[in-house]
Design a protein around this nucleic acid. Structure first.
Lengths: 206, 206
DNA sequence: GTCTATATTTCGATAGAC
DNA sequence: GTCTATCGAAATATAGAC
């Protein structure tokens, strides 16, 4: 199989630029609906040239999936512990909100291409639970935590996704900063209510 | 054996059974990834037979999309007015939660095949804003409503989707009734907090 | 590293028998 | 209403020139 070129300092490699184009196209139209010809066209070269950088179309999908893996290793080491304790939810959700806001497209890509990425699963058993989604599932399956709290967790995560995906689509004039603040306030109320039985009342947006 | 296909009263038509199969396959694997051959195989007849019931693959997708349209006509006449006024949110969300819970697969199908359905858009201009999603967008674009409330609206809708999709996937042992109740409680906290700034305080119960 | 050209497969869709 | 057979288009992927 072909080997990618050495990355140049300061500039994005062709491989990364292909991934950027693929990320946008896959996110907007869906993985299966996007042909390599389209990607090549956007890169201003031909379809065959892509095979120098990637061994297959699935390989591009996998590379994009791995971007999410790396994101998971960035700062979510204590995710399980944080989410298992409502007192630590504010900090955990702040991190999640900030991460999702800064990588909105990547998460949207994952949401929209859930099935395609899932189909890739059995191939990359390099890491056991490095995937954020896998770790999340194990948290939600933890019966030590009351089911009410775990359901609220899914609602909170859905609220973030909804606020960013749906909101980011409709409220085009809104800055990331403002949107993030409003979503965080909403999450605060959603998660603060069950937490206040053991912690302080929620504060307003900053 | 001489067995003519019996169109018995009270039984689902072949067309509807095809749609049921397509709904499941499209939801699980994605529209573009599912071939007519797969659908036909599940129906125990051949690919060509599908063309007696549907004029194209897109026609199947459209028919499934129309199921959501019908759902929209069921009881969402006052949706715009209800969602524009935070005081009326509880009733509106109760209806939305109940509807989404009862038609979880259909909504999940729509979520997972968002791009494919969207691509179908320009073809069926029969109704202006019959689509629930279109109506929702117009609500979210209504600048009469403060942006904070509209963002909360997107969060609330996301919370419902998250609770049902993610929750329904992980909490398999949980009944629809219990899940619906917990999600409704979460939505109540999420939507009750902003309501108190412009109206009376939320009911302390829960 | 990118090109032209082509191999191979699969898909959506049609025609016509029964 | 379902079948067999097949068409044409488009997709992924490969081979080899430059």
């Amino acid at each position: 199989m072909p080997r990618p070129p050495a990355p140049v300092e300061g500039e994005k490699s062709t491989r990364e630029r292909i991934l950027d184009v693929a990320l946008e196209l896959f996110t907007h139209a869906g993985y299966e609906a996007v042909s390599l010809r389209e990607i090549a066209q956007r890169m201003n070269f031909t379809k065959a040239a892509l095979y120098y950088h990637f061994s297959s179309k699935d390989d591009i999908l996998l590379a994009l999936h791995l971007r999410l893996h790396e994101l998971g290793r960035a700062g979510f080491e204590d995710l399980e512990a944080d989410l298992a304790d409502p007192d630590r939810w504010p900090a955990a959700f702040d991190l999640i909100v900030a991460t999702m806001l800064a990588n909105r497209t990547l998460f949207l890509f994952h949401l929209r291409n859930h099935s395609a990425v899932e189909r890739l699963g059995p191939h990359h058993d390099n890491a056991e639970h490095a995937d954020l989604r896998e770790r999340l599932r194990s948290i939600l399956a933890d019966e030590t935590v009351p089911i009410e709290l775990r359901v609220r967790l899914t609602c909170a995560l859905g609220a973030i996704v909804g606020g960013f995906v749906l909101g980011g689509e409709v409220f085009a004039g809104l800055s990331d900063d403002d949107l993030g603040r409003m979503v965080r306030a909403a999450i605060g109320d959603l998660t603060g209510a069950p937490a206040r039985v053991s912690a302080e009342p929620p504060a307003g947006g900053g």
